[in-house]
Design a protein around this nucleic acid. Structure first.
Lengths: 300, 300
DNA sequence: GGTTCGTTCTAAACTCTCTTTATGACCGAG
DNA sequence: CTCGGTCATAAAGAGAGTTTAGAACGAACC
């Protein structure tokens, strides 16, 4: 179905070499192929992308503006491809140690890095594989035995799985520094928050759900002025203008630290949600999954 | 020189499809190739990686544990490859708008995302390309005209370039919550900090340099107990044990927010360094680079 | 229990991508 | 001017990757 034709990783690496050496010839030599072959591949790549990448002169080849942009992207592709090979390497080395994780986007982005680094320091040869997946996807991955340990947000563990709460994600109210609420001294009550027009994620998203549930306990519903699709979109919208948002503390920690956003204190409202590690009831955790959980317990 | 042979992106995508559909046959159909072709490609991939990816039965194909790990990595590769194609797409669409940035690792990781999102919201079709590079690399990239705007840490702009300070990165002293310094009430003085054994980056790194210069103003030198190669290594070392580290506030904002690290106040010491946007004196900034700078000024 | 559908593998023929080898043309430095 | 460097072109060849065709096996269903 996907009718795209992918560029060739070897050619991307070749292009990167041309950028470094300034010569198709030398780049070809680096890769152990003949100069015409290199030239031909680069031309094919240009054809595929529909962009002129190189300005070929009689004294070398230089990147066009478009070309240097492509090199920037290409290097990222190569980096992740190297990660793949490196991971497989770890997989095939005697220990055969692998830990396959699945986590929601926010967990993967904000929490998992901190949990995982200690583990990789203890086991440098451990092959860590992470897949982004929402709660329902995680269940399916477990059914197929494709994952060792998963992380989901939500009230309780999915059916057939056991879990352990590893984190309490706290939602906070944030505004731009210029916003009038930023100067407010006394904390916001539930009624006041409910009457404030918010910038929020769509209905069905995790954070939106927590907010609605918390307000519902006081018989209130949030008033949403603007719905955006991603957390970063909300953050930049609020930072620019005069909006008010309710977001995970983790997602805005950096912005709070550097002053792009201000925190507005709230009282009498439980804006927290559990983040739990889950695994199938039927099979025990492997050594590394246990170690990871132990590490999280320690820090949390 | 690099004697590696890269996996084929189409095959990686095929593998991902097999994981989803549970059938080589269906995956082949999705990609518009015959079943034997798909089977052959997957076998080649297994051969290349030296890993058995699939358990083939008469009623479908399932990932092996190794296979699912590989799928996790493969999906990342495909994502970055899609970013490349998407970027080129934006490049070739009529506007031809591109902005090529180069930044140091820390700027790229901690600051740039926040600066860039407003810009991409204003110009959704802008092709943004980012290359990681240290200060000297940035100069070389400019010489070759491969970059529109760069970001470097350091006292002053490199020769031949003009720059503008866009950020003051502040270094802070952090410890684990259990550390005795975490309970300390009164702020630390320069002499006390200099006599405290630190976990630090190697000599020559940006943060180390700032620390040494700040202490030197008081005729002091830091005492380093342990040198580590990366900021994340330092963070996890300090979070686990009883070390003391001096790190960028941005790098530890998340850990401070979630309580894995505690901040130790310091007085009488200038632990800040400038981060500046730089561009060649010879050529003017393009429209988007100007817009980006303007946006930074606004928030900063 | 057989029949049918779906799955896989194997084998042989073929296509065509990509490579090398062998050129030629051009530029700049010594 | 010549030498060493660059790139492009052309022709021929290798081999990767494809398709078509056929066979074997398992599961589900009547």
């Amino acid at each position: 179905m996907t009718e795209r034709s992918w560029p060739d990783l070897a050619t991307l690496e070749l292009l990167s070499s041309v950028a470094r050496t300034g010569s198709i010839n030398q780049a070809a030599e680096l890769h152990g192929i003949s100069q015409p072959a290199a030239s031909w591949r680069l031309r094919r790549l240009e054809e595929l992308l529909g962009v002129t990448l190189l300005r070929r002169t009689r004294s070398g080849a230089q990147l066009t503006p478009d070309g240097s942009a492509v090199v920037g992207w290409a290097e990222r592709v190569l980096t992740s491809a190297r990660d793949l090979l490196e991971g497989v390497e770890a997989l095939t080395s005697d220990g055969h140690a692998a830990l396959r994780l699945a986590a929601s986007l926010t967990v993967a982005e904000y929490l998992l890095p901190g949990w995982v680094t200690p583990l990789t320091r203890q086991h440098p040869d451990l092959a860590l594989s992470l897949r982004m997946a929402n709660s329902t996807d995680v269940v399916r991955l477990f059914e197929r035995g494709e994952v060792d340990l998963g992380f989901v947000e939500g009230a309780r563990a999915p059916a057939g799985m056991q879990g352990r709460t590893v984190w309490l994600d706290e939602l906070v109210v944030v505004v731009a520094p210029e916003h009038r609420l930023a100067r407010r001294r006394s904390p916001l009550g539930p009624a006041h928050l409910a009457s404030t027009p918010l910038v929020a994620r769509e209905v069905g998203s995790g954070t939106r759900e927590v907010l609605e549930r918390a307000l519902a306990q006081h018989g209130l519903v949030p008033s949403v002025a603007l719905e955006l699709a991603s957390t970063t979109a909300i953050k930049s919208a609020v930072a620019e203008g005069d909006g008010v948002a309710v977001l995970s503390l983790l997602a805005v920690a950096r912005e709070l630290a550097d002053g792009r956003l201000r925190l507005v204190p709230v009282v009498d409202l439980d804006l927290s949600r559990a983040i739990r590690a889950v695994w199938p009831r039927s099979q025990p955790l492997n050594e590394y999954a246990r170690a990871l959980l132990e590490g999280i317990r320690h820090t949390g």
